[in-house]
């Protein structure tokens, strides 16, 4: 018994030894009083807090601006070539489930040829692996995902927190290519929802791993991220099939200016 106690005691003193070894070679007598520990640590945290607050103040506006600019840039990437600047031509659309959508319009001779809007996974049935996935879609006036002349698909991931190298591959061309020309039949979302291509071949809006009739090839090792992204794109297209929303999206009314204008356009939609 006494031997065990002895070894334990030794171990403790060895640990203490390694701890002491790090700091300046201070004998026991110079052990800091407890209040000093509190003061120093509080001081460090205060300085860190001030540094973070300062950093936030310096960067916040620029971050918001960069995000907005990025969105405007992305809008052009999911739309075909337009006569106008889609970044400067947007409309607020009220959604049936509450909330609004900001849609950027691509016009061909005044008529709206395609719209771009983003939707996130917050109201998803299938959640992403972490955080929120926000997807920007370009939709033609016939309700199909845009295919651009350069072969790019009208789907971009604006924001996500999936695992690098696995779920993050939803950003890749190959996965987004699944949605090329995708289309949604019917007004509501059901598990049986189909997407039919122009030749009339139909497939389900699910990842193929869940149902062999699905048309989405999930990323290996990232089925959860693939499912969540598929659902966001599907929901985005289903909005387009809502009669009121579609009319509002395709209306040729010019961009409302200022906050008051935005509110008015929302009311007009509800009429």
């Amino acid at each position: 018994m006494s031997e065990i106690v002895q070894t334990n005691g030794d171990e403790v003193s060895q640990d203490g030894g390694t701890l002491n070894h790090v700091g300046p070679k201070a004998p026991e007598a110079v052990v800091q009083p407890r209040w000093k520990l509190i003061v120093v640590l509080t001081g460090v945290c205060l300085v860190a807090g001030v540094a973070l607050a300062g950093g936030h103040m310096l960067t916040h506006d620029r971050i918001l601006k960069a995000r907005h600019e990025f969105k405007l840039l992305s809008v052009k990437k999911v739309l075909p070539t337009c006569d106008n600047d889609p970044g400067g031509d947007h409309v607020e659309v009220a959604l049936p489930g509450g909330g609004t959508l900001t849609a950027f319009r691509c016009r061909h001779g005044g008529k709206v040829a395609a719209v771009a809007y983003s939707l996130d996974s917050k109201k998803n049935k299938h959640s992403p692996y972490g955080g929120v996935i926000e997807v920007l879609v370009g939709v033609t006036r016939k309700g199909r995902i845009v295919t651009r002349k350069d072969g790019r698909v009208g789907v971009l991931i604006l924001q996500h927190s999936e695992t690098p190298g696995l779920g993050a591959r939803i950003e890749g061309k190959k996965f987004r290519g699944n949605f090329m020309d995708a289309h949604h039949l019917g007004r509501n979302l059901t598990a049986q929802d189909m997407s039919c291509d122009q030749a009339g071949h139909c497939a389900k809006w699910v990842v193929r791993k869940d149902d062999p009739k699905g048309f989405v090839d999930a990323i290996s090792g990232a089925t959860i991220s693939s499912r969540a992204t598929t659902e966001v794109v599907h929901r985005a297209l289903a909005y387009f099939n809502d009669q009121k929303v579609r009319q509002a999206l395709l209306s040729t009314r010019p961009t409302a200016s200022g906050a008051g204008g935005d509110a008015r356009s929302v009311r007009e939609v509800g009429r």
Binding site: L19, N20, V22, G23, A26, Q32, K36, L37, V40, L41, V44, C45, A48, A51, L52
Partner: peptide, 16 residues
């Protein structure tokens, strides 16, 4: 930095 609180202090510095 007193040696007893050095680890929390370093973690604060790193996280900042």
């Amino acid at each position: 930095i007193p040696k007893k609180v050095r680890i929390p202090a370093y973690v604060v510095v790193i996280a900042t």
